[in-house]
């Protein structure tokens, strides 16, 4: 307390009490006002765990929403506005269709209509045609063995 004992004359003339007042009943009312402020500040505290989960999920939900939006804006209109032939199958299928079309174009009309008939014509062979066929594809020995 040495410093306090050595107070210079001008300061020692003064009362050592701070020259301030407070409004009447200030300290009586303060705890209630503080309580009110505490309630306002921390009223949402019990809901924090739920809020925390939502806060954690927010970025993931945002990302998912972005993907959905991109899908809606790009993929879905493409599906709707592109021709079915292009959108429905792979490229090989298109090539196959083109080849078939090309073959059909080269076929003449009678053959084409004949192909469309349900039952093919019954083919008959005369003896000479049979002999000629057999003589070109099988030897005499093979024919003989089959007859036997």
């Amino acid at each position: 307390m040495n410093s306090l004992e050595n107070i210079p004359p001008r300061l020692s003339e003064l009362k050592k009490e701070p020259p301030f007042r407070v409004p009447p009943h200030y300290f009586d009312d303060f705890p209630a006002r503080l309580n009110h402020k505490l309630e306002q500040e921390f009223i949402a505290v019990p809901a924090e765990p739920r809020g925390k989960i939502i806060r954690l999920l927010k970025p993931i939900m945002g990302l998912a929403a972005s993907f959905l939006l991109v899908f809606m804006l790009v993929y879905w209109p493409l599906q709707i506005f592109t021709p079915k032939k292009m959108a429905s199958g792979p490229e090989n299928a298109t090539d196959l269709d083109d080849n078939l079309l090309h073959l059909l174009e080269n076929v003449d009309d009678p053959t084409f209509y004949a192909l469309l008939e349900n039952e093919p014509e019954k083919v008959t062979f005369n003896d000479e045609e049979l002999v000629s066929y057999l003589s070109t594809t099988q030897s005499e020995f093979e024919i003989y063995m089959q007859i036997k």
């Binding site: 003339e13 003064l14 009362k15 020259p19 301030f20 007042r21 407070v22 409004p23």
Partner: peptide, 10 residues
């Protein structure tokens, strides 16, 4: 401050 309670020296 209306709640200042000192004299001129204060």
């Amino acid at each position: 401050d209306p709640w200042f309670d000192g004299d001129e020296i204060q």
